[in-house]
Nucleic acid binder design. Sequence first.
DNA 1: TATGAATGAGTGTTCATTCAT
DNA 2: AATGAATGAACACTCATTCAT
Lengths: 214, 214, 214, 214
Amino acid sequence: MTKAKIQTRNADATKRRIFNAAYKEFAQNGFAGARVDQIAKKAKANKRMIYQYFGNKEALFSRVLMVAYNDIREEEKKLELDHLKPEKALSKLVEFTWDYYLSHPEFMALVNSANLHKARHLSDFSIDMTQLHSGHVTLVKNILDRGVASGVFRKGVDAVQLCITIAAVGYYYLTNRYSGSILFGMDFMEEKALKTRGKFNKEVILRLVKTEKN
Amino acid sequence: MTKAKIQTRNADATKRRIFNAAYKEFAQNGFAGARVDQIAKKAKANKRMIYQYFGNKEALFSRVLMVAYNDIREEEKKLELDHLKPEKALSKLVEFTWDYYLSHPEFMALVNSANLHKARHLSDFSIDMTQLHSGHVTLVKNILDRGVASGVFRKGVDAVQLCITIAAVGYYYLTNRYSGSILFGMDFMEEKALKTRGKFNKEVILRLVKTEKN
Amino acid sequence: MTKAKIQTRNADATKRRIFNAAYKEFAQNGFAGARVDQIAKKAKANKRMIYQYFGNKEALFSRVLMVAYNDIREEEKKLELDHLKPEKALSKLVEFTWDYYLSHPEFMALVNSANLHKARHLSDFSIDMTQLHSGHVTLVKNILDRGVASGVFRKGVDAVQLCITIAAVGYYYLTNRYSGSILFGMDFMEEKALKTRGKFNKEVILRLVKTEKN
Amino acid sequence: MTKAKIQTRNADATKRRIFNAAYKEFAQNGFAGARVDQIAKKAKANKRMIYQYFGNKEALFSRVLMVAYNDIREEEKKLELDHLKPEKALSKLVEFTWDYYLSHPEFMALVNSANLHKARHLSDFSIDMTQLHSGHVTLVKNILDRGVASGVFRKGVDAVQLCITIAAVGYYYLTNRYSGSILFGMDFMEEKALKTRGKFNKEVILRLVKTEKN
DNA sequence: TATGAATGAGTGTTCATTCAT
DNA sequence: AATGAATGAACACTCATTCAT
């Protein structure tokens, strides 16, 4: 193994450590609240390396956002929903979305921060983002179409609006879990409460698309 | 003969100007990104006055949050939904929620920032907040109960989950309007898109609670 | 009683409250550490009054210093040492000095602060101060002279140096009581320790001036 | 070939420059009156470096105090008083103390400031300080014991009280040199006056401990 | 590739003092 | 005689970024 390779490997490792640290720091504190010093410290890297590898704080945040969005879609692909019946497929997607948010609360914090800054950190990768996401809409649209064809789903449900709603019902509950717990006087993160909400989400979506029984 | 007070040497007016400026600054930049200097400048007040009247940045943010939450409930009360038929009442509430978020995008930004900080700025007023909000849940619960009694709504829908969902469908769309516009490749804030979403929200909620036709 | 008189009386009372508050504040925090706001608060007076009555922070400090120096001499006069035998008189003076410092620790703090600022706050009253103090030296000198005349004190002890030393032995112990307690590993302010030191001071001074026995 | 390091990019040098500047600034203005900006300026260092190397203003003051106390003891050790006869040793110690205060007036200013703050800046190093100082007491005690053994010193003189008194007679005169000059109407720092006082101090201490002649 | 030292603009906060009534 | 509102400069401290090695 050549020296160049080792250096590359170390460089890659450093870069990855910085990225992971940045991911956490941005998620915990938002873009404005995140500290470059803290990222370097968490990454056990020299601060200078951050600038070497990522340019500056803003570019690093952009990078983190892009990867974050990519990750969720990557996971989604693994579901292989095309093999399932429409109703089951949709139910599983709602469940997946909820579970993903639940196990990746940082994702929501990043998205919120991105929007506070009017998504300007996304605009560099605008095209990639749109393309990446179109797969998601197509996925939902396919399920819907199959459901309509088999008569279990009603016609006329817009796929984009459905996508948004699937995300909304879980996202809102979880991103506002702290204020929610105070306002509603209950622990939003308690196991039972989470189970209840997870089930409720599926009901919201399915009642929205299913054909009325007769 | 008393004259209308000039803006100078008027404690109440200054306090109000500071508050309003803070409201905007926090909404635009989040808690961490907000600048006390900027608030003073926007309020055309001396920075010292901010500390005189509100203590410090954190207390000012707490105050802003409390008022923001109060405002939305105050507006809600004006709807007088008890006079309306259940279905109409619920529809109007969904519409109101959507319209309120639409005309007060700062509200969502504030709530997001509060949650980024784990709602610690709310905990000072925890009790007031809970009480304030309980009225909201009761309102929804009354509509639900009336609907069940008259047979238009199905039994077993949890009022709290419904409250959350009513908020969720509008909040998510609007708070993530910037990233959404990029991801879905459409302008989320375009008039037609807003109308479409507003209508969709109502459908989501009503299909969730309505009795199945036969 | 006329209105003018009441106002005067109130004005005097306010002035006195301010003065007393300033005395404490300067003693507790030194000149630089003292806060005008705090003085006003302690005095339950409007801050503006401080400037009305005393000009500014520096002038107020000057005033406090002058009164502080005056007070100790005023108390000293009450001792009527001329009626006592030289040895007894000197012993009583040492005791008085120690007791005064002990019961007026603020005095030492004020003097220290004055010296940190090179006594510029004293220079306005330079002449008064010198005159005031000359009485003190005279007092000691008289005791010394009487002692020499009666053979109990040796000749050639300088009155000024004696004055300084009488002050020094108590002042140093008390003004440095906090650092002293740490350095010497004992509580300088404990009752027994104070008694020991008080007695020691007298021994230092008397052995210094007394004729050698034969 | 190594070259002598330039002052820039030299952590140790910068740290030392900051320390020295802080020493002066604290001595001149006390803790409260000292300005961090001024320290940076004097040290020709960036303000940020102060925080990098010392944490904050309080910690820097603590550090300065500790070193200041250490320095005087370090110098004292060089005297090698054990080789001298008791009377000579004691006389030399009094002289040293006086000379040290005279050539290090900052030391007294620092100690005064530390005591104004109730020595809280010393408490971090409480144990070190006590231990450091115990050497000083032992030194004096040894001289006393040797003197008693050889019959030149009387029995029963407490070493701690003696230590305090040796310091007191010089410290008081010098720390209050500005007010003293005004009160006593003479220049405390004039060469002759200093000589007189230096001599007087020795007399105070020696008369205190020496055996009465017969 | 990597590092620790350094920077200047800025951060929230507090100060002594003055204004308007 | 008295007040509360207001000010601007200063305060301790921190930021993202760059330099020298």
